[in-house]
Design a protein around this nucleic acid. Structure first.
Lengths: 337, 337
DNA sequence: TCCTAGCACTCCGCGGTCTTAAGTGCTAAT
DNA sequence: ATTAGCACTTAAGACCGCGGAGTGCTAGGA
C-alpha cells in the first residue's frame, strides 16, 4: 500500500518541514529532493499518505505537514540515528571530564544536552535504589540530635537530621555507627532493610531507642522518600519553539519533577532510546512536544534517565544521536569515577 | 514643583497601569480615583510629570505610562509595603514548617514565593562562608581515594572526593580526621584557613602528603569554588508577562547562576528590602524587569538572599510584602531547626 | 497501468484605505 | 487656578482586492 516512493515522499516532507517550519508543497519537493518524478505524481502520493493519516494540510491550498503518526513512521522506519561528528564527541568528552563531583557531572550534562540539541534538557540524578552503600556516617549535633549521612557508590550523598533522641552519648552514637557500617557497608540499597533487621537486638538496651530512631530514618530515606531529583536546562530554547498549546502549560509541567520523571519513559537498559511523539505523551502540557530519552548508568545497568523535550517538529536523527552519545559518555564518566 | 496632587496623580497612574496594563488617560483617572478635579486639570499635571520624566506616552494621543523613574518615586515615597493577610501568613507558616531538611526548606520557599507573587522566584542557598563548621568527615574510598564531607551549622553539606592519595591507610585517615575536627569544629568558615595552617606539622611525616591533599581540597571548597547555589521557581509565570525585550533573553539570563546572585542585590541585614527597577539592573536581559529582594538569615545575620523578578509593571506593595514576609519566616524556620 | 502536463479553483497573507475611539493640547471662560 | 469645549493626532480594527502558492481533476502520453 505504501510503496518505496511514497515513503521517500514522507521522508522528504518530514525533513523539509523540520528545517523550514513551513508546510511543504509538491513543487518544492520535486525540486529539492531529486525524486525523479513530477509534482503531479507527488501529489497523488500525497493524497495516499493523507488518507492513511501520515500527513495533513492546515487548510486547503497549503502544503502538507506530518502528523504524529507520520513522525512515528519516520522515526521507526525512515531515519537512522545520526552519529555525532568527531569534533562534537571531543567537545562532549572534554566538557564532561572536567567535573569533580556528582552534582557537577549532572549539571554539566544538562547544559551539554541543551546546547547540542537546542532544546530543553532533563537529567535525572542517579537513583538511590539502584546503587550500593559506600558508607554511612552518624554525627552528633548537640545533645538531642544526630545527623545521618549516607554515601552511595555513585557519589550521591543523602543527609537527614534525627531529632529528639534522648541520651545519645557520643559513645553510643559511635558504637551504633560501627555496628551500622559493619551491617550495610557495600550492600545494595534494596538489601539494606534485610541487613539491618536484627540490628536493634545487638545494641545494649539503653541505646535501643536511639538505634530505632536512626534506623527508621534510614529506612525512610531509602524507601518512602526516594524522591528522584531531576535537573533541567536550556529552557531558554523554549522561546524559539512554537507550540500550539500555550507556552505557560509547558513551563508549568516542566516545574513538576514528578511529571518529568514519569515523562522520561521506561527505557530500562542504558543507551536504549525512547521517543515519545506528541499525543503519545499522556501528560496534558506535552501534547505537542516530543521527548527523546535514554537510560544511562554503569555497564549495562541503568541508574537513571536523561532526555530532551522539544517540538514534535524536531530533528529526530540529530537529537537521538546527541541523546545517545551523551548518555554513553555520562555512563563512562560515572564508571571511571 | 511637585505638589501633593501631582504625586497623587502619579500614584493613581501607577496603580491603574499595574492593574490594567493599558496606558491610562486623564478621563479614566478622574472617574475612578475620586481626585475631585476634572480631566483637564489632571492633564495639566500630567504634562508637568512628563516634563520631569516620571511618565511618558507611548505615542501621541495615548494615555500615560510610568517610567522607571516614576516607579522609583512610587516605591520610595508613594507606597507602603503591604502586609500579608492573616490567611496568607498562616499558609506560609504551615507550608514552610513541613520541611525536613535544608534542601526542602529552600525548595518550598521558592515555590511559595512564586505562588504568592505570581512571578519568578529566586532563592539562594545559605552561604557557606557565613556559617560555621559543624563537623568534617573523612571516608576512605578504596585505597587511592578519600571522600571529604563538610557539614555546616546551617545544615548544608559539601562533599568532595580527593583522588590519588597514596598510602592512605585507614588509621592515617582516622588520625587526620580527629586532628582536623579538633582544629576546626565550630569554627567560622572564614577562620578555617588560619585554624588549619599549622596542622601539617602535627602529622607524622609519612602521612603528610595525605594531609596536604585533604587540606588543599578543603580550602579550595571553601574559598575558590564557593559557588553559591540558587534555586529558581515559577518560571511558568513568565509566560503571562510581556517584556519589551525577548523572552529568550530573560530565560537565558535566568539560567546563569552567577548572574542571578549578582542580581539579588546588596541587602546586608535580613528583611531589608532591595528594589531594582528596569534599567537600574546592570545586566542586559533585565532592562525591562524589576527585582525585589531581601536577605534572610538567623537573628540579624544575613545568610543568603531571596527575591523575585517580574516586569517593571508589577504590584510593588504586594510583592514587597510577600518577599519580606517569606524572608522573615524562612529565617525563623532556619533558627528553629 | 502508471505518469505527466495543463488548468481551474481555493484560500491565506499582504498591503491599502477608511473609520472609530481614545486621548491629547490649546484656548477662552469662569 | 480650574474647567469646558474643540480641533487634532494616532493606533487599532474592519473591509477589500489582489497575488501567489498549492491543490484536485482531467485528459493525453509512455
Amino acid at each position: 500500500m505504501l510503496d518505496d516512493r511514497k515513503l521517500a515522499v514522507l521522508r522528504a516532507i518530514v525533513e523539509d518541514y523540520v528545517s523550514t517550519n513551513e508546510p511543504v508543497g509538491s513543487k518544492a519537493l520535486a525540486g529539492k529532493h531529486h525524486l525523479g518524478v513530477s509534482p503531479a505524481t507527488i501529489r497523488n502520493d500525497m493524497v495516499a499518505l493523507e488518507e492513511e493519516g501520515y500527513i495533513t494540510q492546515p487548510h486547503t491550498s497549503a502544503g502538507r505537514v506530518p502528523t504524529d503518526k507520520g513522525y512515528r513512521l519516520f522515526v521507526d522506519r525512515l531515519s537512522t540515528v545520526k552519529p555525532l561528528s568527531a569534533a562534537e564527541r571531543r567537545a562532549i568528552e572534554s566538557f564532561l571530564s572536567g567535573a569533580v563531583d556528582l552534582d557537577e557531572i549532572v549539571a554539566r550534562t544538562v547544559r551539554l544536552l541543551a546546547q547540542l540539541t537546542r532544546q530543553v534538557a532533563i537529567v535525572q540524578y542517579p537513583s538511590l535504589t539502584r546503587s550500593s552503600v559506600q558508607h554511612v556516617e552518624l554525627v552528633p549535633l548537640g545533645s538531642q540530635r544526630v545527623m545521618m549521612v549516607l554515601i552511595t557508590d555513585t557519589g550521591r550523598v543523602e543527609q537527614r537530621v534525627i531529632d529528639g533522641v534522648d541520651g545519645a552519648s557520643e559513645e553510643a552514637v559511635e558504637d551504633l555507627r560501627q555496628l551500622l557500617n559493619r551491617a550495610i557497608d557495600g550492600a545494595w540499597l534494596t538489601d539494606v532493610p534485610d541487613a539491618v533487621a536484627d540490628l536493634p537486638s545487638q545494641v545494649p538496651p539503653d541505646d535501643r531507642q536511639l538505634a530505632m530512631s536512626v534506623l527508621s530514618v534510614l529506612l525512610e530515606s531509602l524507601v518512602e522518600r526516594h524522591e528522584e531529583k531531576v535537573l533541567l536546562g536550556g529552557t531558554a530554547n523554549l522561546a524559539a519553539m512554537d507550540f500550539s498549546v500555550s507556552l505557560r502549560e509547558v513551563l508549568e509541567a516542566l516545574e513538576e519533577n514528578v511529571v518529568l520523571i514519569r515523562l522520561l519513559g521506561e527505557a530500562e537498559n542504558p543507551s536504549m532510546l525512547t521517543v515519545r511523539i506528541g499525543a503519545e505523551n499522556s501528560h496534558e502540557g506535552f501534547q505537542s512536544t516530543s521527548i527523546v530519552s535514554a537510560g544511562y548508568g554503569i555497564g549495562d545497568q541503568s541508574l537513571a534517565k536523561l532526555g530532551v523535550v522539544g517540538p514534535t517538529r524536531m530533528d529526530y536523527p540529530g537529537t537521538m544521536g546527541a541523546v545517545r552519545a551523551v548518555a554513553r559518555y555520562v555512563g563512562s564518566i560515572l564508571a571511571g569515577q
